[in-house]
């Protein structure tokens, strides 16, 4: 399984995922889907944009927060909006290399284009159906956490 030629990950430390999401129901669905999909994932949650930025910058109570390998970011958030969080991540020299995926209910074309302009790594819509939601998390896990070379493979900065 860990043959480097197969493209599989050989480093077995946990995969740190930061979920920025204010809906407790969606947090629970995402957590359950990851538990069923990939037991190496360590999911941290920030419930608004200000908390997300404090986590990412290791400020205050987040002094020991791990650097995420992947960020899943909702757009509509209290305090600091997801669009602003995305812009802050992608204009920060240290944070910008972290793959940041929008995961939102918004289907507005303007949100999709704006997110890609701000250099979101991908834009996903939350499906309403539970099995479609599970499929989506499985696809994220399969592509991003199994196939992709994450920036950590270039050494943590």
């Amino acid at each position: 399984m860990n043959d480097p030629r197969s493209g599989m990950r050989s480093d077995m430390s946990p995969l740190e995922v930061l979920l920025v999401e204010d809906s407790p129901g969606d947090v629970r669905l995402t957590r359950d889907a990851f538990i069923n999909t990939n037991d190496r994932v360590n999911l941290s949650v920030a419930v608004d944009g200000a908390e997300a930025m404090a986590f990412l910058r290791n400020e205050g109570e987040y002094g020991n927060a791990p650097k995420p390998d992947l960020i899943l970011l909702d757009l509509n958030l209290p305090k600091i909006d997801g669009r602003e969080v995305l812009a802050a991540i992608k204009t920060d020299d240290i944070l910008r290399s972290i793959p940041t995926i929008i995961l939102t209910t918004s289907a507005a074309e303007s949100d999709i284009v704006k997110s890609y302009k701000l250099q979101a790594n991908a834009y996903l819509r939350k499906p309403v159906q539970l099995d479609a939601f599970d499929n989506l998390i499985r696809s994220i896990s399969d592509f991003w956490l199994t196939k992709v070379k994450l920036p950590r493979q270039g050494g943590r900065s």
Partner: peptide, 24 residues
């Protein structure tokens, strides 16, 4: 590693390594 990091810095949407085996 340097290419992986610099590609993400340049805002590559993802970085994949071509596997040698056909199935992979």
């Amino acid at each position: 590693p340097a290419d992986i990091v610099s590609s993400y810095q340049l805002q590559a949407n993802a970085y994949l390594v071509k596997p040698v085996q056909w199935e992979a």
